[in-house]
Simulated scan of single mutants.
Amino acid sequence: MPFNSPNPETYDLLMNRRSVKARDMVGPGPGEGEIKKILDAALRVPDHGKLSPWRYLVLEGSERDKLGDLIARALVEENESSPKVAEKMKGYATQGPVLVVAISSTNAESSIPVWEQELSAGAACQNMIIAATALGYASCWLTGWASYSPTVKGGLGLAPHENIAGFIFFGNQADEPSERPRPEFDSHVTWGFPS
Protein backbone atom coordinates (compact mmCIF):
# COMPACT_ATOMS: atom_id res chain seq x y z
CA MET A 1 0.00 0.00 0.00
CA PRO A 2 1.38 3.46 -0.87
CA PHE A 3 2.29 5.78 1.99
CA ASN A 4 -0.36 8.27 3.11
CA SER A 5 -3.21 6.52 1.31
CA PRO A 6 -6.64 7.92 2.24
CA ASN A 7 -8.45 5.66 4.70
CA PRO A 8 -11.79 7.00 6.01
CA GLU A 9 -12.17 3.92 8.24
CA THR A 10 -9.15 5.11 10.23
CA TYR A 11 -10.91 8.41 10.95
CA ASP A 12 -13.97 6.48 12.12
CA LEU A 13 -11.75 4.38 14.40
CA LEU A 14 -10.21 7.52 15.93
CA MET A 15 -13.61 9.04 16.57
CA ASN A 16 -15.03 5.86 18.12
CA ARG A 17 -12.04 4.53 20.05
CA ARG A 18 -12.69 4.33 23.77
CA SER A 19 -10.41 3.24 26.59
CA VAL A 20 -11.62 0.27 28.61
CA LYS A 21 -10.79 0.30 32.30
CA ALA A 22 -7.95 -2.13 32.84
CA ARG A 23 -9.77 -3.70 35.80
CA ASP A 24 -12.73 -4.47 33.52
CA MET A 25 -10.69 -6.25 30.85
CA VAL A 26 -11.02 -9.96 30.23
CA GLY A 27 -8.82 -12.43 28.38
CA PRO A 28 -7.53 -13.41 26.09
CA GLY A 29 -5.17 -10.58 25.40
CA PRO A 30 -3.28 -10.14 22.16
CA GLY A 31 -0.81 -12.92 21.38
CA GLU A 32 2.85 -12.41 20.58
CA GLY A 33 2.24 -11.76 16.87
CA GLU A 34 -0.40 -9.14 17.62
CA ILE A 35 1.72 -7.50 20.31
CA LYS A 36 4.50 -7.25 17.73
CA LYS A 37 2.09 -5.47 15.37
CA ILE A 38 1.05 -3.09 18.16
CA LEU A 39 4.70 -2.35 18.96
CA ASP A 40 5.55 -1.96 15.27
CA ALA A 41 2.98 0.84 15.23
CA ALA A 42 4.71 2.39 18.25
CA LEU A 43 7.99 2.45 16.33
CA ARG A 44 6.47 4.47 13.46
CA VAL A 45 5.85 7.75 15.26
CA PRO A 46 7.24 11.23 14.57
CA ASP A 47 10.79 11.24 15.94
CA HIS A 48 12.75 14.45 15.38
CA GLY A 49 16.40 13.54 14.88
CA LYS A 50 15.68 9.83 14.49
CA LEU A 51 16.67 9.27 18.13
CA SER A 52 14.17 6.49 18.94
CA PRO A 53 13.76 7.97 22.44
CA TRP A 54 11.62 5.13 23.80
CA ARG A 55 11.64 1.44 24.57
CA TYR A 56 9.08 -1.11 25.72
CA LEU A 57 8.84 -3.84 28.33
CA VAL A 58 6.18 -6.51 27.64
CA LEU A 59 4.80 -8.29 30.72
CA GLU A 60 2.46 -11.26 30.56
CA GLY A 61 1.33 -13.92 33.01
CA SER A 62 3.43 -14.15 36.17
CA GLU A 63 5.72 -11.35 34.96
CA ARG A 64 2.90 -8.95 35.87
CA ASP A 65 2.90 -10.41 39.41
CA LYS A 66 6.56 -9.44 39.75
CA LEU A 67 5.64 -5.85 38.93
CA GLY A 68 2.82 -6.03 41.48
CA ASP A 69 5.29 -7.17 44.14
CA LEU A 70 7.64 -4.34 43.18
CA ILE A 71 4.85 -1.75 43.45
CA ALA A 72 3.83 -3.10 46.87
CA ARG A 73 7.42 -2.92 48.14
CA ALA A 74 7.79 0.62 46.79
CA LEU A 75 4.63 1.74 48.57
CA VAL A 76 5.96 0.53 51.91
CA GLU A 77 9.48 1.90 51.38
CA GLU A 78 8.63 5.27 49.84
CA ASN A 79 5.19 6.11 51.19
CA GLU A 80 5.28 4.19 54.45
CA SER A 81 2.02 2.57 53.41
CA SER A 82 0.70 -0.24 55.53
CA PRO A 83 1.41 -3.78 54.30
CA LYS A 84 -2.38 -4.22 53.93
CA VAL A 85 -2.65 -1.28 51.50
CA ALA A 86 0.48 -2.44 49.68
CA GLU A 87 -0.93 -5.96 49.33
CA LYS A 88 -4.07 -4.56 47.72
CA MET A 89 -2.00 -2.56 45.22
CA LYS A 90 -0.25 -5.72 44.00
CA GLY A 91 -3.26 -6.23 41.73
CA TYR A 92 -2.53 -3.03 39.79
CA ALA A 93 -0.18 -4.82 37.41
CA THR A 94 -2.51 -7.77 36.74
CA GLN A 95 -5.61 -5.82 35.74
CA GLY A 96 -5.37 -6.61 32.03
CA PRO A 97 -4.10 -9.78 30.34
CA VAL A 98 -1.06 -8.08 28.73
CA LEU A 99 0.88 -5.08 29.98
CA VAL A 100 3.38 -2.99 28.05
CA VAL A 101 5.50 -0.58 30.08
CA ALA A 102 6.32 2.31 27.75
CA ILE A 103 9.62 3.90 28.69
CA SER A 104 10.68 7.37 27.60
CA SER A 105 14.43 7.16 27.03
CA THR A 106 15.62 10.67 26.27
CA ASN A 107 19.07 11.89 25.30
CA ALA A 108 19.92 15.21 26.98
CA GLU A 109 23.13 15.48 24.92
CA SER A 110 21.17 15.66 21.67
CA SER A 111 20.40 18.96 19.95
CA ILE A 112 16.76 17.82 19.90
CA PRO A 113 15.00 19.22 23.00
CA VAL A 114 14.09 16.61 25.63
CA TRP A 115 10.48 17.84 25.49
CA GLU A 116 10.26 16.83 21.81
CA GLN A 117 11.69 13.42 22.65
CA GLU A 118 9.06 13.00 25.38
CA LEU A 119 6.34 14.00 22.92
CA SER A 120 7.54 11.20 20.64
CA ALA A 121 7.14 8.70 23.50
CA GLY A 122 3.59 9.97 24.05
CA ALA A 123 2.84 9.57 20.36
CA ALA A 124 4.12 6.00 20.57
CA CYS A 125 1.70 5.24 23.41
CA GLN A 126 -1.16 6.69 21.38
CA ASN A 127 -0.18 4.61 18.35
CA MET A 128 -0.26 1.48 20.50
CA ILE A 129 -3.79 2.01 21.74
CA ILE A 130 -5.01 2.89 18.25
CA ALA A 131 -3.32 -0.20 16.78
CA ALA A 132 -4.86 -2.37 19.50
CA THR A 133 -8.32 -1.04 18.67
CA ALA A 134 -7.72 -1.67 14.96
CA LEU A 135 -6.79 -5.28 15.81
CA GLY A 136 -9.94 -5.75 17.90
CA TYR A 137 -8.50 -5.38 21.41
CA ALA A 138 -9.34 -3.14 24.34
CA SER A 139 -6.63 -0.93 25.78
CA CYS A 140 -6.01 1.44 28.66
CA TRP A 141 -3.05 3.81 29.10
CA LEU A 142 -2.38 4.49 32.78
CA THR A 143 0.32 6.25 34.77
CA GLY A 144 -0.28 7.02 38.45
CA TRP A 145 2.02 6.94 41.45
CA ALA A 146 3.96 3.84 40.38
CA SER A 147 5.14 5.48 37.15
CA TYR A 148 7.03 8.09 39.19
CA SER A 149 8.37 5.80 41.90
CA PRO A 150 12.19 5.58 42.02
CA THR A 151 11.87 2.05 43.44
CA VAL A 152 9.60 0.91 40.61
CA LYS A 153 11.76 2.58 37.97
CA GLY A 154 14.90 1.02 39.41
CA GLY A 155 13.28 -2.40 39.73
CA LEU A 156 12.32 -2.27 36.06
CA GLY A 157 15.88 -1.46 35.08
CA LEU A 158 15.34 2.14 34.02
CA ALA A 159 18.43 4.32 33.67
CA PRO A 160 18.53 7.73 35.41
CA HIS A 161 17.54 9.50 32.16
CA GLU A 162 14.48 7.25 31.63
CA ASN A 163 10.88 7.63 32.77
CA ILE A 164 7.75 5.55 32.56
CA ALA A 165 5.50 7.09 29.90
CA GLY A 166 2.72 4.68 30.71
CA PHE A 167 1.51 1.29 31.79
CA ILE A 168 -0.55 0.21 28.78
CA PHE A 169 -2.94 -2.68 29.34
CA PHE A 170 -4.39 -4.82 26.55
CA GLY A 171 -7.20 -7.35 26.62
CA ASN A 172 -10.81 -7.72 25.60
CA GLN A 173 -13.82 -5.80 26.79
CA ALA A 174 -16.50 -7.71 28.68
CA ASP A 175 -19.01 -4.88 28.22
CA GLU A 176 -19.43 -1.98 25.85
CA PRO A 177 -17.57 1.01 27.36
CA SER A 178 -19.59 4.15 27.99
CA GLU A 179 -18.71 7.47 26.42
CA ARG A 180 -17.21 10.17 28.60
CA PRO A 181 -17.78 13.91 28.31
CA ARG A 182 -15.67 15.41 25.54
CA PRO A 183 -14.37 18.99 25.37
CA GLU A 184 -16.28 21.61 23.47
CA PHE A 185 -14.60 22.27 20.13
CA ASP A 186 -14.90 26.08 20.27
CA SER A 187 -13.46 26.20 23.80
CA HIS A 188 -10.20 24.69 22.62
CA VAL A 189 -9.78 25.83 19.01
CA THR A 190 -8.94 29.35 17.84
CA TRP A 191 -9.00 30.22 14.15
CA GLY A 192 -6.42 32.77 13.07
CA PHE A 193 -3.50 34.55 14.69
CA PRO A 194 -4.27 35.85 18.21
CA SER A 195 -5.00 39.58 18.31
Rank of each mutant, 00 (worst) to 15 (best):
R18V: 04
D12P: 03
E118Y: 04
E162I: 00
D40I: 05
E179W: 07
S82F: 03
I35S: 00
E32Y: 04
G91D: 10
S178Y: 04
P160A: 03
P183H: 04
Y56S: 11
S104L: 06
A159E: 12
G49H: 14
R180E: 12
L142G: 05
S104G: 09
F167R: 02
V101D: 07
P2N: 11
L57F: 08
K90D: 06
A174T: 04
K37S: 06
S81Q: 11
C140T: 09
L13K: 07
E78Q: 05
A134T: 05
L156M: 01
R18W: 08
R180T: 11
L51R: 13
A159G: 01
L67P: 00
S187G: 13
W191L: 12
S19W: 06
D65F: 08
I129F: 11
W141M: 12
M128R: 05
T94H: 03
V189A: 02
S147M: 03
E176V: 07
V98M: 08
T106Y: 01
T106W: 01
Y56F: 15
K36I: 13
S147E: 04
V98F: 13
G31L: 03
F170P: 01
G27A: 01
E184Y: 05
H161Q: 10
P181G: 05
W54R: 13
V76H: 08
F169M: 08
K90T: 08
S139W: 11
V114S: 05
A86Q: 05
Y11L: 15
S19L: 10
G154Q: 02
R23T: 10
L67W: 02
G27I: 00
E179H: 09
V20P: 00
N127L: 12
E9T: 15
P83F: 04
L99E: 07
P8R: 07
S19N: 11
G157H: 00
K36Q: 15
M1I: 10
Y148K: 08
E77G: 01
A131K: 13
A132C: 06
A41E: 07
C125I: 09
W141S: 12
P181I: 01
S149G: 02
E87A: 06
E118A: 09
P28E: 04
P97E: 05
G96S: 11
E32R: 11
V98H: 02
P183R: 05
E118W: 09
S187K: 15
Q95D: 14
N107P: 09
A121R: 03
R23K: 15
K66R: 15
G91L: 09
E184S: 14
